[in-house]
Nucleic acid binder design. Structure first.
Lengths: 154, 154
DNA sequence: TAAAATGGGACTAAAAAAGTACTGATTGTT
DNA sequence: AACAATCAGTACTTTTTTAGTCCCATTTTA
């Protein structure tokens, strides 16, 4: 329904790990990759992106590493997805839907009609995502895993 | 941010066209494809899927075609996306995030933690989408295109 | 200056999306 | 009954995106 790439999934796992530790502590990619059971190069890639987008800060050199750029309750799900998912589609109207051929003007109009609807939906979804913070995600983790034990042994 | 395939985009355009006409009227694929400026085979593909998922009804033979299976205000954005986007990812936890290698048990645990958060988010998004109907989409189209004219000539 | 980190890309392979084509099954009209 | 219009199913090809790896440059500290 709402699709997310693995890349973003990895990012969340890495960020959650940092969010569980004290704020000022830095974490090397090696450490983070181990924690998340991710191949090192992949973790590097994700973290570099997060750094460039300003969600984490980096410190080079010996004993360097990454840490959250701001407290976990001020990093939203929307921030994370925006950062990792790349500039995204949905409301690109004609440009995106264009099959690249004849019909030039009229085509646009047909699609633009629909695009108004999608813009609206897009806003709704964004608002929903803005209301979930990284801190919430970590909190949910405990709530739910607690529940889990009571329910089943699987 | 929230990514939708072109396929779904086409579906919306086709459904909106039907929603603008009287409910009982049937529309041939040829007609719909022309209206939407879509290649015929593509429109066929989309409509077949919509029919199989029960969003539209089909009538074979001469003068046959498609029509909405229920009134436009009872078809939600969620219905449409579910039908066209295929079973979707997001909350598939380990199965999806698995890099397919060593780390078997522990890996799961790391990702499942994050998945609780995503499940929650997924629910929020779904609710948002359930509140937008095909009729709303058509309505938005007019509202906004009215605005548009006043603002700019582009 | 050597070692431990991140930074920025380029590159490859696998998977998914986008688009087309073909063949079969109904149904209404003559 | 034959024909033509119309949907149904599925297989196939091409293109685009994802996923993952690698290499070399830069920064920092001991």
């Amino acid at each position: 329904m709402f699709r997310m790439t693995k890349f973003t999934g990895y990012g969340v796992v890495l960020l959650m790990h940092m969010a569980r530790q004290p704020d000022d502590e830095t974490h090397s990619v090696t450490e983070l990759a181990n924690e998340a059971y991710l191949p090192l190069p992949m973790a590097q890639k994700v973290l570099k992106r997060l750094a460039r987008k300003g969600l984490v800060e980096s410190q080079r050199g010996v004993n360097g590493g990454y840490r959250l750029a701001r407290p976990a309750d001020r990093i939203t799900a929307l921030d994370i997805i925006d950062a990792l998912e790349g500039a995204v589609a949905l409301t690109q109207c004609a440009a995106e839907l264009d099959l690249g051929s004849k019909h030039d003007r009229c085509e646009r109009e047909a699609y633009c009609a629909a695009s108004h609807a999608w813009q609206e939906i897009n806003l709704i979804v964004q608002n929903a995502l803005r209301n979930v913070s990284l801190r919430d995600m970590v909190a949910l983790e405990w709530e739910k895993s607690g529940l889990r034990i009571t329910i089943s042994g699987e």
